[in-house]
Design a protein around this nucleic acid. Structure first.
Lengths: 186, 186
DNA sequence: CCAGTGATGTCACTTGATGACATCACCACC
DNA sequence: GGTGGTGATGTCATCAAGTGACATCACTGG
């Protein structure tokens, strides 16, 4: 029994993505997004800290799942094996919706401000993974390095997966990238 | 001689850093920075694209030097050895001014918008290094992975160097971090 | 001496973002 | 059934970032 139309946040997310795709990020005003969702600009900023954040609403959940997978890895697993488990979880969560991922990523890639925001989300992921590794008893700087290396693999593999509509699935692409990283640093 | 006071850009950089340090980034307006430099806000935006960019004026030169060092590495050098040469160049350029680096980094670390900007500069560095590696004949995804791995080492080592006033110098810290990365991914 | 040029100033404007306050529908409790 | 609380929203005012258009002003080259 909603007092207002339900799921204001979801409507704002949807309206924003549609407008960002059709006219571009900069050409879209917050007032337009809110109007399309049947709300006002002031309300938009109650749901999202700024105009970019609306595209990253799912990142907190992604981070939580990655960390869960990392800490749940077998105690005997090496740091990079634990990171690998986190990457598997990421692939499971993002590996669907190739089309939607591609669309969203295209918006992000076409705007520097959005790329900045994406990078800081990745950095947050990285520090969360490093925290998880330290809780597993991994010392510094190994924990940070393994976490950052995992994020590198994630980014490179995700980009590759996005750009190859008929390539292997995300999980496979990530495992391949991880193998290549081992080879190239070795 | 100069029609106006010389080095407007340098005066703006200096004024901005002073104000960002003393009152914080958000609490400083562009009008204040410009006034301290004897200029107007409009002129500030002719020198710097936005309020954050003034802190990253040297990044283009840093990038050029890293790429130069990378492409100048011996032809027989492996991808990671070439990246290592770039890191040596970075250490030579940034390894001085421990005090100033620390001050600037403290401003950046205390503000999310500035951290975003720093991350995108790092990403730019990474793609430039990957380009350089490809010019050296390194294929994808190895070029991207080696470049990103190099940036990871750079970031982790720089942070470590900043936080340890009496630790080893930057070049040494970077070499150590690179060794640890090899160990942890191996 | 004069036209051109480049750096700056002035003005007007849009938009992102925020604080203060009002409103309005529902809910719990007496 | 009131009655007051609560949470989500709207309204209004305001600030600061950023930009376009145009003026100015000092020097430079012919």
């Amino acid at each position: 029994m909603a007092r207002w139309e339900a799921d204001a946040s979801g409507r704002l997310r949807e309206a924003a993505l549609e407008l960002y795709v059709s006219r571009g990020f900069e050409q879209t005003t917050v007032a337009e997004i809110a109007a399309r969702a049947g709300l006002t600009a002031r309300t938009f900023f109650r749901h999202f800290a700024d105009k970019r954040e609306v595209l990253f609403a799912g990142s907190a959940e992604l981070q939580a799942r990655l960390v869960d997978a990392l800490v749940a890895a077998p105690e005997a697993a090496s740091p990079m094996q634990a990171v690998g488990a986190a990457l598997d979880a990421a692939a499971a969560l993002l590996g669907q919706n190739h089309q939607r991922s591609r669309q969203r990523q295209s918006v992000i890639n076409s705007n520097p401000e959005l790329r900045e925001r994406e990078l800081i989300k990745m950095a947050s992921l990285s520090t969360a993974l490093a925290d998880g590794l330290r809780r597993r008893g991994v010392a510094e700087p190994d924990a940070s390095l393994a976490a950052e290396a995992g994020i590198v693999v994630f980014r490179v593999a995700f980009e590759r997966w996005i750009s190859e509509p008929d390539g292997p699935d995300l999980a496979r692409t990530m495992r391949d990238a991880l193998d290549r990283l081992k080879a190239v640093t070795g």
